[in-house]
Design a protein around this nucleic acid. Sequence first.
DNA 1: GGGTGCATATCGCTG
DNA 2: CAGCGATGTGCACCC
Lengths: 237, 237
Amino acid sequence: MRLVIAQCQVDYTGRLSAHLPWAKRLIVVKADGSVSVHADDRAYKPLNWMSPPCSLTIREPDADEACAVPALGARVQQVWEVDAVTGDHLQILLGDVDLDVTEDLGVDPGLQKDGVEAHLQELLAENPEAFGDGWSVVQREYMTPIGPVDILCRDAEGTYVAVEVKRRGEIDGVEQLTRYLDLMNRDHLLGGHVQGVFAAQQIKPQARTLAEDRGIDCLTVDYDALRGMDHPEERLF
Amino acid sequence: MRLVIAQCQVDYTGRLSAHLPWAKRLIVVKADGSVSVHADDRAYKPLNWMSPPCSLTIREPDADEACAVPALGARVQQVWEVDAVTGDHLQILLGDVDLDVTEDLGVDPGLQKDGVEAHLQELLAENPEAFGDGWSVVQREYMTPIGPVDILCRDAEGTYVAVEVKRRGEIDGVEQLTRYLDLMNRDHLLGGHVQGVFAAQQIKPQARTLAEDRGIDCLTVDYDALRGMDHPEERLF
DNA sequence: GGGTGCATATCGCTG
DNA sequence: CAGCGATGTGCACCC
């Protein structure tokens, strides 16, 4: 990883065009080939970047570029050209350099996450009684031509129920489930009528209203309680 | 901006839980208060971070934490605690420090962008003949109770047309326009029938199929050509 | 502050 | 490779 703090001017052309006037910024070159240009705000988001795969070429400024004066009495020291196979291009003109360090970080052992939608789905699939007495799971990630239904269940009467699981239930999730239901209701193998359940840790009022208007049941899920019902020894950490 | 490269172990609890085992990483503290932990890959995305507003407290390790040995012969030097008002918490245990520099970057003059959806919408609103002869613009960002329609037009026959503009036309955009049309078709002030146009630089086949199935017309827009029809002297750069 | 939509979104999985 | 969905999405804008 290489860290450079320098006066710079940046131009990007690709999916859009963007221009950064002269200012002092941080430039990060990672081992994966990525290049990012950061200001002292915007949290972790850079002002400009190039994602790998891309190639970085560093060269002397030509006569024309040397005239692009970063500050009074200063001059352009280097020109960085970053090219991606997609045609995206990032050009960085560098003036005075305040920091230029390179450190080998090695490969990161990686990130362990807990509490994402996949875990919620897993817990619900293992505890279908959370939906109601006599419910059973037919299949997780039940594939339809337009995407996978999170959990396909049958209720106590044997009716098929498509369950859409979300951490936060918003209007998009209801639209998604509606598309699945429209399709599944045309499938005679599923009995001609598939019920819908929208399950989330938190359901926005507008999403609930839309769901109920479409005959979809809503279930608010307590992740920690459900986790407690499960096997505590299987927790990640 | 403060840049630290050090052996570290990171734990995050908030919207989810996440754990990073000991490894050498880059830690960035920006003037906006944000803290990001980077590995040497994942392009500009950090492994873990805290967004402002948040507070950073640096302290000595207690007896318990000192036992968390980062590497053979090393010991925990510092503990960083980052807290957000939302209750989110980030804890970083630091071992050996390889780099610790602080630089004042000042306020960034900012970013100029060209070619995003807003520009496309602007160009189309100024050139409604792109939709067809005799078309006129009624209003941009026409408000409905569920959100703004990008452009409301009338065609040569005087029929109202809701135009949804996207850089890349995908299925979500068709759903969005459909919701607007459902609502507007109940509005007698708009003549009881509002036509739909889905305009984008590129329209995915599935989005096109869905749109046509719903009676929505598709228009592929050439941004550069449209820009040429417009006033070249008004270009950003 | 909630609702809505845009983003150079990025990333991972599946077919 | 495309399609689809999740993301600690983040962010701006508007009511």
